[in-house]
C-alpha cells in the first residue's frame, strides 16, 4: 500500500507536525515500510467484528467510581509554574516575529 506525500501531509496536519521537503521525501519512504509492517496483521487470522472497548476484560461497577467530593485545587502559581502567565491566565501571543 503506497502512501503519497499528500496523505502524509494530511495526517501530519491532524497532529500538528510539518516536514520540510527533504524530510517529507525520507519520511514517506520510511512510512511505506512501516505501514507494510503494520499490514502484516491483515495477512493472517480473520478478525471478528465485535466491538472493541477499553483495556482488557476489567470492568468497574458504578459503586466503585469516584464519589463527588471536592478536593482542593492547586494554587494559580503552581498551575502557571511552567510558563509566563498573565493575570492568572495562560498567555499566548497570536503571532510572533
Amino acid at each position: 500500500m503506497a502512501i503519497s506525500k499528500t496523505d502524509i501531509e494530511k495526517l501530519a496536519w491532524l497532529v500538528r507536525l510539518s516536514f520540510s521537503d527533504e524530510e517529507l521525501e525520507r519520511f514517506t519512504a520510511e512510512f511505506d515500510e512501516i505501514i507494510a509492517f503494520a499490514d502484516t496483521i491483515n495477512q493472517s487470522i480473520e478478525g471478528g467484528t465485535e466491538q472493541i472497548r477499553s483495556v482488557g476484560a476489567r470492568m468497574v461497577s458504578f459503586d466503585e467510581l469516584r464519589s463527588d467530593e471536592v478536593a482542593p485545587s492547586l494554587s494559580n502559581e503552581k498551575i502557571l509554574s511552567n510558563v509566563e502567565g498573565y493575570n492568572g491566565f495562560f498567555s499566548l501571543e497570536r503571532s510572533r516575529k
Partner: peptide, 8 residues
C-alpha cells in the same frame, strides 16, 4: 479567578 479551580 482564572486557573484557580485547576489541578494536573
Amino acid at each position: 479567578e482564572p486557573n484557580t479551580h485547576c489541578c494536573p
